[in-house]
Design a protein around this nucleic acid. Structure first.
Lengths: 260, 260
DNA sequence: AAGGGAGTTCCAAATTCCGGAACCTTGTCC
DNA sequence: GGACAAGGTTCCGGAATTTGGAACTCCCTT
C-alpha cells in the first residue's frame, strides 16, 4: 500500500459528520499502528493537507485543500451553465436548487441556489449522500448501465431512509421507472418533510454527468405547484440537453411532451 | 523525496493563474522525468485529488479537494467571529472586506465580504498574494519576530508591485512603522487604483493569526472617508482583540487612542 | 510516586519508488 | 499511405522510503 494511498485513506476519514479528528480517531478509523499514524499525520500536516488545532491537537483539512477546493470550482462549463438556468427556475418558483455529481454510489453537492421560500438549506456544498436517496442522485444512476449500477452499490445494501428503495430490487425498479417516464421525484427521504424533483444532465462532449434538483417543503406545496416544478424542470432539462449535446436530447424531448 | 512530497509539489503547481495543467505543464513545472510524472498524475487522479478533463486531458483539482476544502471552513471561531464584525463594518462603509491567513511569505484569502460600492471583487477566496504587497499581509508579518520574517521572505527578494516595498530593508521599515503606529495601509499595490487598510488579529488561546482588511477605490474615496475607515477598523480591532484575548489587547488600545 | 494515556522516535526488514529507455497512440504533414 | 513528432505509458533493477513493534518521552491523574 503506497504512501499516497495511506494519506488518502486518512483524508477520507473526514466528512461533514466528522470535520475534525483526534490522533486516536484516525488510528481507530484507519486501523493502522500508532507509529504509522503518527508519521503520516505529521507529513500531512507539514505539507498543508491537514491542520492541527494548537489547542485541542485535533486535525482538520488544511489550507491547501481550501485553496485547491476553490480551484475545483473553475471546472465550469457544464456546471455553471446549469447553475445559470437553475437560478432562473429557483427565482421563479421560490424553491431551493441543487447541483450534484455522482461519486461511487454517493452524490456530492456542488452548488446550491437558495430559494426565496423559507426552507433551510440542509445540504451544504461538499455534502455526501447516498445517491439512491435523492431525486437527482437516482436520475444520475438511472442513466448508467445496470452492471455499472450494480458495481457501485455496496455488496451489503446500505440502510437508507424510510421512503427510499430498501433493497437492490426496489432500487432497480425505481430507476427503471425514471428511465421510462424521464421524471425523478423524492419525498420524505433524506430529510423529513422535504420533497424534490430532479434530472440528470450529461455533456455530449466530455461525457461528465451532473444531477440537478429542486427541493421544497412537502406540506407547504400543493399538487399544482409540484406540477409546475415538473414543467419548469422539463423545460430546463430540454434546454440544457440541447445546449450541452446530451445524448438523451431527442429522446427526452419525446418523453417530456408525453408527460405533459 | 517521499511520494507524498512529490504529490504535494504537483498540487502546488495549481493556482488561480493556472487552474488546470497539462501533462507537459506539470513536467515542466516540477522538472520531473516523464515516467515519474505519469505515475504520479495517475495516482493523484485515481485517488480523487485530481480530475482529468476527458476531452482536453488536462488536470485540475479533484472532487476530494472540493469536499475537504468545504470542511476547512468548519475551522471557525476566530474567523467567523471576525467575519461577523467585518460584515457590519462593510455594511456601514460600503467597502469590501477581506480575511486572510499567512502561509510562508504569502497570504491566502479565506473570506470576502462584498461591499455595496461597485468595486469588483478581484481576490476571490483561495487567492494567494505576497503578504508584503497587502495591508493586512504586512500587518500580520509585523507581528512576527524579525528572524521569523527573514526566514519567510525568499533569499532573492520577490518582484512586488510598484508601491510595495522593493527590498528587504524597505519592507522592514514598513513593518516597523506598522508596529509603531498600529496602522497598516496600502494604495495602488496589487491592483491599480485600489487601496486598503488592515490589521492582524491573533487569538490569545490558540495563537493563530488572521489578517483583516477593508479595500476601496482610491479615486472614489476622500481622505475623510479613509479616515472614517481607519476609525471603524480601529474600533473593530479593539473589540475583536478583547473578545479573542489577543496579546496585543492593552497595547493596541493605547495606540488607537493615540492615533485618533 | 506510581500508573496510564497519548504520541514520538528508533531500527532493520520489506516494500515502494525512481528514472532511463523502450514502447505505444494519436494526430499531422508530405 | 507512410513517416514523423508529440504526448504519454510501461518495464525493470538499483536506491530510497516506508513499515510496525518496541522502547521511550511527556503530561496528567490517582
Amino acid at each position: 500500500m503506497s504512501a499516497l494511498t495511506n494519506a488518502i485513506e486518512i483524508l477520507h476519514c473526514f466528512s461533514s459528520a466528522r470535520p475534525d479528528l483526534s490522533f486516536a480517531d484516525v488510528m481507530a478509523l484507519t486501523g493502522k499502528p500508532k507509529s504509522s499514524t503518527s508519521r503520516l499525520l505529521r507529513s500531512l500536516r507539514d505539507c498543508g493537507l491537514l491542520e492541527q488545532d494548537p489547542h485541542t491537537r485535533r486535525y482538520r483539512p488544511g489550507l491547501l485543500t481550501f485553496e485547491l477546493g476553490r480551484l475545483h470550482r473553475a471546472h465550469d462549463d457544464l456546471i455553471s451553465m446549469a447553475e445559470r438556468e437553475l437560478r432562473e427556475v429557483c427565482a421563479r418558483t421560490g424553491h431551493t436548487g441543487y447541483i450534484a455529481v455522482l461519486d461511487g454510489y454517493e452524490q456530492v453537492v456542488l452548488r446550491i441556489v437558495p430559494g426565496s421560500n423559507p426552507l433551510r438549506v440542509v445540504n451544504p456544498p461538499g455534502q455526501r449522500t447516498p445517491a439512491l436517496a435523492t431525486s437527482n442522485g437516482r436520475a444520475m444512476l438511472a442513466r448508467l448501465s445496470d452492471e455499472d449500477i450494480r458495481a457501485r452499490v455496496p455488496a451489503t445494501y446500505p440502510k437508507l431512509p424510510r421512503n427510499s428503495p430498501q433493497n437492490f430490487k426496489q432500487a432497480m425498479a425505481r430507476l427503471d421507472e425514471i428511465r421510462r417516464t424521464g421524471v425523478s421525484e423524492a419525498a420524505d427521504e433524506s430529510i423529513e418533510g422535504v420533497g424534490s424533483q430532479g434530472f440528470a444532465l450529461k455533456s455530449g462532449e466530455t461525457g461528465e454527468m451532473i444531477g440537478i434538483a429542486v427541493s421544497y417543503s412537502v406540506q407547504a406545496t400543493t399538487a399544482a405547484e409540484r406540477a409546475n416544478v415538473r414543467r419548469e424542470l422539463a423545460a430546463m432539462a430540454a434546454k440544457l440537453r440541447r445546449l450541452t449535446g446530451d445524448p438523451l436530447d431527442q429522446a427526452t424531448t419525446r418523453v417530456q411532451t408525453g408527460t405533459r
